[in-house]
Design a protein around this nucleic acid. Structure first.
Lengths: 237, 237
DNA sequence: CATAGAAGTGACCACCTGGTCATTCCCACG
DNA sequence: CGTGGGAATGACCAGGTGGTCACTTCTATG
């Protein structure tokens, strides 16, 4: 750590930017600190996460962490801000991937892309899920509204696009459909890490099975449960 | 509290059953203790729940609680056992409500009955949800296999019954449909207490709107998203 | 009334938490 | 070399936690 770290020090010194202590740190150290903290929050949730534990694992003085972020909450906010940005990017990528695919194909693609993201960034995903369900995070309302609105809007637009193409029932409420999609996807993603949540569906099994089950879920949402024409008269109003 | 309490004491003494201290208590006191503890666990989750706070609210010595239940975990398990029973009962009631209704009607009925239960027993519902998503409860695995398996089985049977009646597509995987139903319902019930989860759908609005939205959700699941026949060729394998 | 045995009590314990700050260390500069 | 100033440190703090236990209080009974 000495060589490059001191080189970086020199550089910052020369630029004489008086940023915060943490910003002046060797980027490698920054990453190490952030990664370990993220892991702790992801594994334990906000309240159970322990600064002492983080510091011990980093082999760093406790005072340092507080010098960097001011407080536990400050550390968490810093982490989360970064996470939100990292989550937004791939979501946008999927949205902007315009293709000639049909609505069901697109939906399947979104499902598997999301699953891949959740698996590639387990800590981010874990923190997001904890915030959704755990109530006592700082800034929960603000952050959640922000992220969730983005996700629901994304799904809504997907549905609306399908309607314009005539692939999705015109009388379907896009917001409602988005709600169902998000609920199903969320549970499916949770199930892939937890066989007890999976309950035998196969989402926590090997990659192929999982993929097949995700596709089947998307398809079930598209086709619906009902035997085509027969029931429509009964159910509609 | 003196009169009836001492009468109860006498009674237990006469039966000379040497049950646990807590069992010998005046039932009213038992209920008070259980209710307040349930509330604490529901509001804070297992780890954040504080024995000190419970005891203070009950105006009881801390030693007493530990005499009753041995430990924090003991108290929780006691609570939990009672809760599981109370959750199972209404589920069975709904299942056994046989009628001539069509599948979509039944599904709507299940949705609104569940919503009613969640509203009538907010503490039970809150603990159930916390355990579903929070990992660090004692007995979590037990709960999930016991209660959730029951719920999923229930939904699966509902779907299978619909298939026998020819109301539900025969090629639909009942377990998969149950998964979607449970995911949607769970999100809907969570949304009714939290406008941030609701995100404008109307589930956290007044009773009428909520009811309408729940019905609409059930209907969307039945009809599916796709424009009837057209898409089927594309999506199915 | 005396008493055994159960119920009730709260000071106390070890441990852990987030947070502080006087001090020391480090190193680029003049 | 000496020095200025940012980075690093860890003993220390007040407060909260689950849990203990020697003690008192109650009361149904002989």
């Amino acid at each position: 750590m000495p060589r490059e770290a001191s080189a970086f020090r020199k550089e910052t010194r020369q630029m004489n930017l008086s940023r915060s202590t943490f910003d002046n740190l060797d980027p490698q150290k920054q990453r190490r600190v952030l990664d370990e903290s993220l892991r702790e929050f992801a594994e334990r949730g906000y309240n159970q996460a322990s600064i002492n534990r983080i510091v011990a694992r980093l082999d760093i003085a406790k005072g340092s962490l507080f010098q960097y972020f001011g407080s536990k909450e400050g550390l968490f906010k810093h982490l989360f801000r970064k996470a939100v940005d990292e989550i937004k990017a791939p979501l946008r990528a999927i949205r902007d991937a315009r293709g000639a695919e049909s609505f069901p194909e697109r939906l399947k693609r979104v499902f598997s892309a999301s699953a891949a993201f959740a698996q590639a960034h387990p800590f981010l995903w874990s923190i997001y899920r904890r915030m959704l369900t755990q109530e006592d995070f700082p800034l929960r309302a603000t952050l959640l509204t922000e992220v969730r609105a983005e996700a629901l809007t994304f799904f809504r637009e997907l549905v609306e696009l399908g309607q314009q193409r005539g692939e999705v029932r015109a009388d379907l409420d896009p917001a409602l459909a988005a709600f169902v999609i998000e609920a199903t996807l969320d549970r499916a993603l949770s199930a892939q890490d937890s066989s007890v949540l999976d309950a035998g569906l196969g989402l926590s099994a090997d990659a192929d099975t999982r993929q097949a089950r995700l596709d089947a879920l998307a398809e079930a949402l598209c086709l619906g449960f009902s035997q085509s024409a027969a029931v429509e008269g009964v159910t509609h109003v």
